[in-house]
Computed example of a mutant assay.
Amino acid sequence: MHQLWVIYLFTFAGVFSSAASIVNNNVSILKPNSIFDYQPRLQRNRFFETDLHTYCYNATYRDIIKFFQSLELHLEIEGGDYTQYEGTTPEEVMQNYKDKLSLWNFNIFMQKRTKLSLSPFEPKCIGIVSRKPYRLRLVLKWVDISRVLLLLSGAFMFWYARKLSENPLFYYITGIILGISLSFMIIIWLSSKFFQRRTLILIGGWSIGVYILQKILENLQVIVVTYHIYVFWYIITTGVIAFLFSYHMGPPKNQRSKDIMRLLMQLVSFVLIYFSSHLKEASVGACIIVVILNFC
């Protein structure tokens, strides 16, 4: 009897895979500030037929004047009845589609993002399967303010790391920020452990954590506006606890502890500067320039 069920299972998997492999893969080239409006077909020739539409962006040439340039891909669609598949080429997108379609790679938390940050200097493709209409926009930012702030913050932190490491106020502010951030990480970790012990064994605990974190970031504004009272009191409570712990420990007094804080801040500043541009060669050069100016 058990052998018969195994035969049925593999037969169904083979039929399902072969039927679902009937895919119409249409490829469109994305250009900066371009807009694509997708309208699903009203009728399909086969029951398992799927419309996979792949959108590809070809990388632009590298130039130092594009240091702060960035791209954002915006997907405007109602509801969550769609799936996404990423890759660097249309063939890679198709392969990811076939891999995720397999019963052995089943994952109910498939990645879905309505806003995707792209590098202007690297090719990128994204495939979308949807039975609902949607609009896709590729927005070009010649000067991304957030990356300008990353560069300025990194340079400021590196140059003033010694003074900040000896400032008690900066110590307490950093302790509060780290305490609030750590509390969020603990919640995500506990959530992953909770689901890992339940029936979702195929998914894996950290997939749950990443999924929850992704949804929180995507809907952060909605969460803050809708549950602003709970968010306010959560931040206040965790901030007070972090301050009391920092106050109990006290600012570092010996020079070695201060040197460790200074080195850690300078390492963080390098990370901020490195991620301030998609042009990684130029961001590494910016790190070197900041170091040189610090000793001038």
Rank of each mutant, 00 (worst) to 15 (best):
M1T: 14
L4P: 09
I7F: 03
I7S: 06
Y8V: 10
F10V: 10
G14T: 08
G14H: 03
F16A: 12
S17T: 04
S17Q: 05
S28L: 10
I29M: 05
K31R: 09
N33G: 02
F36T: 13
R46Q: 14
R46Y: 09
E49V: 00
D51M: 08
D51I: 07
T54W: 11
Y57W: 06
T60W: 07
Y61N: 15
K66C: 09
K66T: 11
F68L: 05
E72P: 00
I77M: 02
G80T: 14
G80M: 09
G87D: 08
P90C: 12
E92Y: 08
E92S: 07
K98E: 04
S102C: 02
L103A: 11
W104P: 04
N105H: 15
M110G: 15
L116C: 03
P120F: 08
E122L: 13
E122P: 13
C125Y: 07
V129E: 08
Y134G: 02
R135D: 11
L136T: 03
L136M: 03
V139H: 13
V143G: 09
D144T: 06
V148S: 04
S153E: 01
G154H: 02
G154Y: 04
F156M: 04
F156P: 01
F158Q: 02
A161E: 03
K163Q: 03
L164A: 02
N167H: 08
L169S: 15
Y171W: 01
Y171D: 04
Y172G: 01
Y172N: 00
I173S: 12
I173N: 14
I176K: 08
S181L: 11
F184A: 10
F184W: 11
I187S: 12
I187N: 09
S191W: 07
T199P: 05
L202S: 10
G204D: 07
I212F: 14
I212M: 15
I212V: 13
L213Q: 14
Q221G: 15
Q221P: 14
V224D: 05
V224F: 07
V224C: 01
V225D: 12
Y230C: 06
Y230L: 07
V231A: 14
T238M: 08
G239N: 00
V240G: 05
A242R: 02
L244T: 01
L244R: 02
Y247H: 05
N254L: 03
D259G: 06
I260P: 01
R262H: 00
L264Q: 14
S269Y: 00
F270E: 07
F270Y: 15
L272S: 11
Y274V: 04
L279V: 08
S283C: 14
S283R: 13
A286N: 03
I289K: 03
I292W: 06
N294C: 08
C296G: 08
